[in-house]
Amino acid sequence: MLELRLAADGEDPGSGLALVRCESEGDAVAVTDVEREGRLVRARLAGLALEDGTWDVVSVDRSGAANPVLTRDSGLSLSHRADYVRRPRTRDLRAIRDPRGRLRLVSARVTPYAEVEWVEVAPEAVTVSGFLAYSPERDGVAAGEVVARQRGLGGVETAPARLDGGRFECAIPLPPLAGAFQPRREHNEWDLWLRLPDDGAELRLASHADDVVGKKGKVVYAGVDLAGGDADTAVRVRPYYTVRDEFSLLATARSGGAA
């Protein structure tokens, strides 16, 4: 549902609305299910064939000419965004305002994942909590697992995870990751999944609901120094975000040997 609040009661929204794809001139989708109540216009978008990409929202006047819909609203509400991501869906639609004030929709196919909201680094564990994104609502408390996979090296570690409705929490022990450190690779990345108890589905841990992209260059977590599998090696393990804003752990050798 695209909900528009017009600037004035007397403003004429035209004979209808349409979406015009920015990446391909000429691609347009008519929005035919539109209702108006005073200054409020509701356009139902369910069932429209929207490809991935950015779409201009245009108003079609009575002569058939299309004019961009302008807005002063940035379209960003963190609370509304979190509520939206919590619901099961296969396509994500976001309203944005471009630098010229035009209203646009960003359309993208999505799959369920585990949204990371809170991270706490302790001497021997990293605790992570959040909620299930784009997933069906769950009832009650259940026991799942967090699965850590050593990227490109084959190591796998697991730890218990608690699910309560649509929320999850897990503590990832760090000594096993340090003990599995392979010095032939300078960086040992451990990618994290939440394994659900009912069907064994695995959801990648990531942070997308805040709309902050490029966290790898913006968010830095403290590291923990631990003994490696080699007695002469000290390993530092810290959380980090990948270039796709997925949540992982990074293990690197400390210079100077074990503490």
Rank of each mutant, 00 (worst) to 15 (best):
E11K: 05
R5T: 14
E115L: 05
A66V: 09
F181L: 04
A201C: 06
G217T: 10
L70A: 08
E202T: 01
F181V: 04
T54P: 04
R236V: 00
T90Y: 12
P173L: 13
A142Y: 01
P68M: 07
L203E: 12
G64N: 13
N188R: 12
W193Q: 10
T127V: 10
G38Q: 09
G14W: 04
H187Y: 02
G152N: 07
V219A: 08
P160V: 13
E186W: 10
G166C: 11
D139L: 09
T252Y: 01
E189T: 00
G229I: 08
T252M: 01
R89S: 06
G214S: 10
V41T: 09
V85R: 04
L132H: 02
D191M: 08
R97T: 07
G16M: 14
H208V: 05
Y113S: 05
P88H: 10
L48E: 12
G256S: 02
R86I: 04
E137L: 12
A133F: 09
L78K: 05
L196I: 11
E115R: 03
R21H: 06
D92P: 07
R236F: 02
G256E: 06
L50G: 10
T90F: 09
E51I: 09
R238S: 14
V141I: 15
S207E: 14
I96K: 02
D92I: 02
G53C: 11
H80Q: 15
